[in-house]
């Protein structure tokens, strides 16, 4: 069933269109900045954008910061919200269930497909923005220490910032290997954060037969969380809000890595995934399928 779900994901035009759109936004932003050289000053605008003019290889981080607040959650909420409700609306849910596909198994397959979509989207954004960044801004600041050889992959990381190819937020430079590791860490945390969104949307998808209802419900939860995150009066519950640690992946680009919020980010998302998946399973496995 997992194979079938992945096949359906891959064969669906929507998957590729949404990923293409996600990749297009950072590319567009990069072109504007490259043409005008008007990057936001440090400390303003989206994270990293001021740094990328100096070093294009940091652009994946800037690109992730661009798509994370709105576009990625929208795409994920739609795909996850569609998973059960979409099948119910199309009438295919009952035909899958009488095949028979066990309800738990179906839910699991849907989750795997959504996770694959999230990973695919995040990795696609990372790769396209890396290529864009390097092509438009170059991969190292011309004024930097200037060691052309340092860009080759496989440089030993043992030395303390021996090769300079990127600059961390803290100003210290990173080797290519360190950069790759940190981007991978950021991709992992963002993927897990999106899985939290997906779990909420998947749960709502088992509650309602309306795809839009499930997707918008999940987005409403996120917007609500964003509102509370900035509200001092809600400080007591802030550590438990789903979007509280969303941006903590930026800490991967500090030198040294600031682990505290990253760990909390992983922890809180794991909790959301567990709670909402359990709720989705409990609801779906006892539900009367009348569509």
């Amino acid at each position: 069933m997992i194979t079938v779900e992945l096949f359906k994901l891959v064969r669906r035009p929507r998957t590729w269109i949404s990923i293409a759109l996600l990749c297009a936004l950072p590319v567009g932003v990069a072109i504007f900045i490259a043409v005008t050289h008007l990057a936001p000053p440090p400390g303003q605008g989206a994270a990293f954008l001021s740094a990328v003019v100096q070093d294009g290889s940091l652009y994946p981080a800037a690109a992730l910061a661009l798509v994370l607040p709105v576009f990625l959650p929208v795409a994920v909420a739609l795909v996850a919200g569609d998973s059960i409700a979409g099948e119910a609306t199309a009438g295919t849910l009952r035909y899958l269930l009488v095949r028979p596909v066990g309800r738990t198994r179906l839910l699991l397959a849907k989750l795997v497909a959504v996770a694959a979509f999230v990973l695919l989207a995040v990795v696609a954004v990372t790769l396209t923005s890396y290529i864009t960044g390097v092509a438009l801004f170059g991969s190292a600041p011309p004024a930097a220490l200037g060691r052309p050889g340092s860009l080759q992959a496989g440089i030993p990381t043992g030395g303390v910032q021996a090769g300079t190819s990127a600059t961390s937020l803290s100003g210290a430079s990173l080797t290519l290997t360190q950069l790759v590791e940190r981007v991978a860490g950021a991709v992992a945390l963002i993927t897990v954060s999106m899985l939290g969104v997906a779990a909420i949307a998947l749960f709502l998808s088992t509650v309602t037969d309306s795809v839009l209802g499930a997707a918008f419900g999940a987005l409403a939860a996120l917007v609500g969380s964003e509102v509370l995150v900035t509200l001092n009066a809600a400080a007591a519950i802030q550590p438990y809000l789903p979007t509280r640690y969303w941006l903590s992946w930026i800490d991967f680009f500090r030198q040294p890595i600031f682990w505290r919020e990253i760990q909390r980010g992983f922890g809180i998302q794991a909790m959301y995934v567990a709670v909402f998946l359990a709720a989705a399973w409990a609801n779906f496995s006892t539900k009367d399928v009348t569509t």
């Binding site: 009952r94 009488v98 028979p100 006892t286 009367d288």
Partner: peptide
């Protein structure tokens, strides 16, 4: 329809 769905395990 409800009866048919119960026979197929769609409705409990």
């Amino acid at each position: 329809t409800t009866l048919a769905r119960m026979l197929l395990g769609l409705v409990y």
